[in-house]
Design a binder for these strands. Structure first.
Lengths: 231, 231
DNA sequence: TCTCGTATAATTGTATACAATTATACGAGA
DNA sequence: TCTCGTATAATTGTATACAATTATACGAGA
């Protein structure tokens, strides 16, 4: 097994290493949708034995990034328009819950931090650093997740976001203005949190997710031929 | 490994057998909250080897029915009031989504079936078969899950419901009238589905879940001393 | 050439052995 | 008696061997 040795870094188990590695490859698209997974090959690639690998694969199967076929073999999960819609629908509601809680828990310090992140998004936009816009956008959401202190919703959101990140990689956004709209939506969420208005913050958060879904759907429709229809 | 042999029954893997068995024991309370889990003992009990057992335990860990301690050993997940509240909050939103979809998909036949289930709940109530009230109540929800055709939400709901069932086992309901109120709420959901009113059905479903939470919270407060506070 | 059957290879599922880690028992010394 | 240290036992993590299942290759017969 490949070992990194960053000073006193906590040694990670072969299982967790495999889980993280395979998940990343699926999200990045290195492992393409529908491509077959053979335990022995993957174990050799990752330089671990099949025992911890199987535990990692089983988890990915439960999380539906990997699916089992009728013949008992695994493959990388296919993508489907219906699944994207479902994921965003659920995500919208959960982000609503989480933002509402975060609004109630936010201290002035937290507001300051969120304001800074939002400013970074704006500047990245202005300077055309599209990559950074996404990075700070994720940071904005993550910070709100932490603030919410809602372990159940956040746990589910993390899983859903893995899937969403994969779709983002696989389906290039068509609408060039989406990033700017998205910034405005973040700003709106922040404003409502700052105004200590949980209900309005919830609405703003849900609007943000719903708009993201619309953008993704539009992109999907453009390349629909290559996307397998929901089974 | 214990094998059942119901005719041409599909042979289940040791892993899935262990998963189902342990989960049931946790939900039923046979395996009590916080009790330690030792792989070797459990493997011996279930008459399987540690390899498939570990895969099952890992899944239960991801689903948070089992938690890992700092020393690397597993124990049955503790229960906490905060967790119940979180689970019900999320469940409320997801049931809303699912009932709304179900309303849109329901055929007259489906309505007929739901009406029958509801009637069974009513009769079980009248005859004092409290056990059956819960059974048909679950059936009511399951049928709506199927109707919704919303794989993502239903998958999450199933996991949440495992936790809820455990709380139900561990925390006896205090409010004797809850079952009757619950029946009325099912009836209300059914009425809105029959009226083909997705929005109203959603509201009715969420009200139902929110009321269930209130009942559970009331019961918890009564035995609070024995319940570990959220960490 | 095409279809089918069968031998062979590939793959998954499970048990087990062993190394690494952590807990426990217990005696020495105060 | 109490505390600490150390030997021993218990436990987890991983690799590997093998059995069971499934896919593949390939030749015989039409």
């Amino acid at each position: 097994m490949r070992t990194h040795s960053y000073g006193a870094m906590r040694k990670v188990s072969a299982r967790d290493f495999a889980y993280a590695e395979i998940k990343e490859q699926i999200i990045k698209g290195t492992l393409e949708p529908d491509s077959p997974i053979v335990e022995d090959h993957l174990a050799t690639d990752l330089e671990i034995s099949r025992t911890p690998l199987r535990e990692a694969l089983h988890r990915l199967e439960v999380e539906e990034l990997v699916v089992r076929q009728n013949n008992g073999r695994l493959k990388v999960a296919p993508i489907s328009k219906k699944e994207v819609e479902e994921i965003f629908t659920v995500r919208s509601k959960l982000e609503g819950i989480v933002v509402m809680q975060a609004t109630e828990n936010a201290t002035d310090e937290d507001l300051f931090h969120l304001t800074n992140i939002t400013r970074m998004i704006k500047e990245s936009l202005k300077e055309g650093h599209r990559e950074n816009v996404l990075v700070y956008g994720s940071e904005f959401h993550s910070y709100i997740y932490e603030l919410s202190n809602h372990k159940t919703a956040v746990g589910i959101l993390s899983q859903l976001n893995d899937h969403i990140h994969r779709y983002r990689q696989l389906i290039p956004l068509r609408n060039e203005e989406r990033l700017e709209d998205s910034y405005e939506e973040h700003q709106a969420i922040l404003n409502e949190i700052a105004a200590r208005n949980p209900g309005a913050a919830k609405v703003a958060a849900q609007y943000h997710i719903d708009q993201s879904l619309e953008a993704v759907k539009e992109s999907i429709e453009h390349i629909q031929a290559s996307i397998k229809k929901e089974t």
